[in-house]
Amino acid sequence: MGFKLLSKLLVYLTASIMAIASPLAFSVDSSGEYPTVSEIPVGEVRLYQIADGVWSHIATQSFDGAVYPSNGLIVRDGDELLLIDTAWGAKNTAALLAEIEKQIGLPVTRAVSTHFHDDRVGGVDVLRAAGVATYASPSTRRLAEVEGNEIPTHSLEGLSSSGDAVRFGPVELFYPGAAHSTDNLIVYVPSASVLYGGCAIYELSRTSAGNVADADLAEWPTSIERIQQHYPEAQFVIPGHGLPGGLDLLKHTTNVVKAHTNRSVVE
């Protein structure tokens, strides 16, 4: 069995187990497998329904001669939608809004960016022009300005110390501490036991640490421990890039980060 097929099978099995364990909360999309990078042309966006009122959005972007996937989250909030992270750029984010209108038909009224990198804030200006209120932590807003990236308009308070959590509509926002970046936030959907790890969490097929220019490698494993301790009931975990899975993604990420750190020390 090929690795790609095995990865998709694991996603399907995880979703099936969740649907059985929580039949009222989960209505997993039966329309197909989780979209992969090879299936999404740059400039297009796919939506994948995880649970009743919960979707991931998947886009792709060219970077350094390669094409990478990027995940975000959409959560229903009454007759409105909360968006977590842009679709990595203005063109993708405009396509995301169009796809949401086509498939869901509810307005996106608020959006949260989970850290300051372009795959999370690139497209904020498109959201703002569409009347979406954009939010991020003060740290993310400051770092985005320093980096020359787009800056969300509103500040999220109460997320300055490791372990801080605040309720934001249908989700809980959690600051686990520094990891992929010093400002990275985690998003949890309690009604569906869905954990969105953003770039602080890796997919299972990833074996290298990737972009760690703004990471705190020493603190990252401790931050992941905080996530595990705060959300032990999480059933569906979405990484910032690639295929979702279960809580095993947290341990896998820790292993990859520690291996990278150990290699760096040896070198």
Rank of each mutant, 00 (worst) to 15 (best):
S223K: 03
E147I: 15
R120E: 04
D64V: 12
T253S: 07
G105E: 14
N262K: 06
G122D: 14
T207E: 13
I50S: 03
G78R: 12
F236A: 07
A144H: 04
V237T: 05
S7N: 07
Q103A: 07
S181H: 00
S137N: 14
S181T: 11
I100T: 06
V194A: 06
A95G: 11
S30W: 14
S161A: 11
K4W: 06
A25S: 08
V42Q: 13
Y135G: 00
I151P: 04
P239D: 00
A15P: 06
Y202D: 04
I40S: 11
A215N: 13
L185N: 01
G210C: 05
N92H: 07
L96R: 01
T261P: 15
A25H: 14
S62I: 15
V166D: 04
I104A: 02
Y135M: 02
V187E: 02
V132R: 01
N92I: 04
A179Q: 00
V67E: 12
L96V: 13
A136H: 04
A144W: 03
A209W: 13
G169K: 03
L13W: 09
A215R: 11
K4Y: 06
L81T: 07
F26S: 12
Y68V: 09
E225V: 12
P152G: 04
Q61C: 06
V37Y: 09
G163I: 06
E203G: 10
G2M: 10
P41W: 12
V237S: 01
H260N: 13
S113L: 15
I201S: 03
K4S: 12
A21I: 06
L81I: 14
E219P: 04
V121T: 06
V146C: 14
H154R: 09
L13A: 08
G78S: 10
R128I: 14
L97G: 01
E157P: 15
S22M: 08
V166M: 09
Y68T: 09
P221R: 12
V132N: 04
E225W: 07
T109A: 13
F63Y: 06
V42S: 13
G53K: 08
R226W: 04
A59T: 08
P176D: 01
L9Q: 08
A129N: 05
F3N: 06
N211Q: 12
I104K: 00
D85S: 01
A111V: 07
Q49S: 13
T134K: 01
P69I: 07
L204W: 13
L185G: 02
L173S: 00
I84F: 14
I50C: 02
E267R: 10
S70I: 03
L243H: 10
A178C: 04
I58H: 14
L6A: 09
G163F: 08
F168Y: 06
P107L: 07
G240M: 03
N149S: 08
Q228V: 13
D183A: 00
D29R: 08
K91Y: 14
K102G: 12
V237D: 01
A15I: 15
I20R: 13
G158A: 10
A165H: 09
I58R: 09
P176G: 03
Y135L: 02
Y196I: 02
F63H: 10
V45I: 15
E44C: 13
P190C: 04
L250M: 08
H117D: 00
Q235F: 04
L143I: 11
F3Q: 05
S62D: 11
E39C: 08
A111C: 10
E233R: 13
G122L: 14
I224P: 00
H115V: 00
D118S: 08
S70Q: 05
H57I: 00
I151R: 08
L243N: 13
Q228I: 05
G163C: 03
L83Y: 01
G89Y: 04
P107W: 05
A15T: 06
A130P: 05
S264H: 05
A98H: 14
G163V: 07
A130Y: 06
L247T: 07
V257L: 06
I186G: 02
S264W: 07
G53R: 09
P138S: 14
W220M: 02
G242D: 04
Y48V: 09
A90P: 09
G131E: 10
N255T: 09
L185M: 07
A133P: 13
G122E: 11
D248Q: 15
Y12T: 12
G240I: 04
G122C: 12
A59C: 08
E145S: 13
Y196S: 02
E150W: 05
E157G: 14
H180E: 00
S264D: 10
E150T: 09
I100A: 09
K8W: 06
D118H: 07
R206N: 15
T14N: 05
N255Q: 05
F63W: 09
F116W: 15
E233H: 09
L82S: 05
D164W: 06
T60Q: 09
A259M: 11
S31F: 05
G89T: 15
G245I: 01
L6T: 07
A234S: 13
V171Q: 02
L250R: 00
L217K: 07
P170E: 09
G197S: 02
P35T: 06
R167C: 05
A178E: 09
V112M: 11
D183S: 00
H180A: 01
A59W: 03
L250T: 03
G240E: 03
D79C: 13
V124M: 14
L10S: 07
L83G: 02
S7C: 06
P152Y: 01
E267V: 11
A234E: 02
L217N: 15
Y12E: 06
I40Y: 05
